[in-house]
Design a protein around this nucleic acid. Structure first.
Lengths: 201, 201
DNA sequence: ACTTTTTTAACACGACTGTACTAGCACCGA
DNA sequence: TCGGTGCTAGTACAGTCGTGTTAAAAAAGT
């Protein structure tokens, strides 16, 4: 059944239109009309692919989560915990345009999730996944003698640092460049290793 | 000229109405009508004190900054850098209801500042002030041998950690209690001191 | 070729938005 | 007592909003 346009493809490009509008004009401007116009469709057509605005937003949020997860899953295995942590963290920070865009949209959704139950579930899902990832990294680093042994405390610290850097990158992209973000993460990993070795002394 | 209600007092209570609506229903619900209803006034009355919605929002944002600054200024002098840092940071984190409210509203404004030039100036002002405060704390700690000597890197780390914790506190107030937030900060200050002493070994 | 289903476009409805305007109120100094 | 002034409430206007409905057009199946 060769359609002119693949339905899932249409949904994907509608989601990208959502992101585009959010980045340019903010989430409050991401109305059904504006998104449809951005995608070059009518509101009736959009409604054919997404029954409601809420459904569209949830799908747009979900898609971001999926993309981040698939990028992480695509990382080639790295036995060294330090290098693995460095790579994973580099994948989570907004170091290029694509991830910068995702980061901005993510933060916009996160903000609205405070008052929108449909989005808060997704936000919590992302929060939990990120925290679990941080805990895994800290655990592995600690086991290799490259981080202190207080895993809950170091997980909390890494997690907060990561989200703080993401917020800063969105607020001041001119100051927080890819280099400075990567340097900040590298510095923290170095500090973790130093703190651990200091314990042994 | 004794008015029935002091104009600045009216403005103050209108600003509190703004915060109330933002916390309960989100920034996008903070319309002129909703804020006026929350304050028990008509839109015409509100307009008498704020010529436009933008003016109202800017004033509400500015008031938060002023309150945080005045709270910091009211801190009694503390000679010990470690204890001073602990107190200042405790003042900046959302450890009680009042600061929790400020934090949530702050984040909402911060998010909108991405697409609202009138708010982005204020956001940048807050960012700069917080970074300067972090730098002062790190400099003092470092001078006292309680933090590493790489002041820019440690400033960046503390600043990001602080904002990350604030975001987490707003996202998951159940998980990030006052105790856990204070513990996270204390842990970081301990780690800074340990890392510094490790250098000497 | 025709029928059926999918896709599109366009418009209507009620609700909400920021802003503007006007009439009426209470209070002040004279 | 008389203006005058600060303040309030109410309403009007021109938009935009999400949603629903309807009808035409395009594609697919037969």
């Amino acid at each position: 059944m060769p359609k002119v346009v693949d339905p899932t493809e249409r949904r994907r490009q509608l989601v990208e239109a959502v992101w585009q509008v959010i980045r340019r004009d903010g989430l409050e401007q991401a109305s059904v009309r504006n998104v449809a116009r951005e995608a070059g469709l009518s509101t009736g057509s959009l409604r054919h692919y997404f029954a409601s605005q809420s459904e569209l937003m949830v799908f747009a949020f979900r898609t971001i989560i999926d993309r981040i997860e698939s990028r992480l899953a695509a990382l080639e295995p790295e036995p060294d915990p330090r290098r693995r942590a460095q790579r994973v963290l580099a994948e989570l920070l907004p170091l290029d345009d694509e991830r910068r865009a995702e980061n901005e949209v993510w933060l916009a959704f996160t903000s609205r999730a405070t008052v929108d139950p449909a989005l808060s579930a997704l936000r919590d899902e992302g929060y939990d996944a990120l925290r679990a990832g941080c805990q895994t990294m800290i655990t592995d680093l600690s086991a290799a003698g490259l981080a202190p042994t207080d895993i809950p405390a170091e997980t909390e610290r890494l997690h907060a640092l990561l989200d703080g850097l993401a917020v800063h990158a969105a607020m001041r992209p001119d100051i927080h460049t890819a280099q400075s973000l990567a340097a900040a993460i590298a510095h923290h990993l170095d500090a973790l290793a130093t703190a651990r070795s200091a314990r042994r002394v």
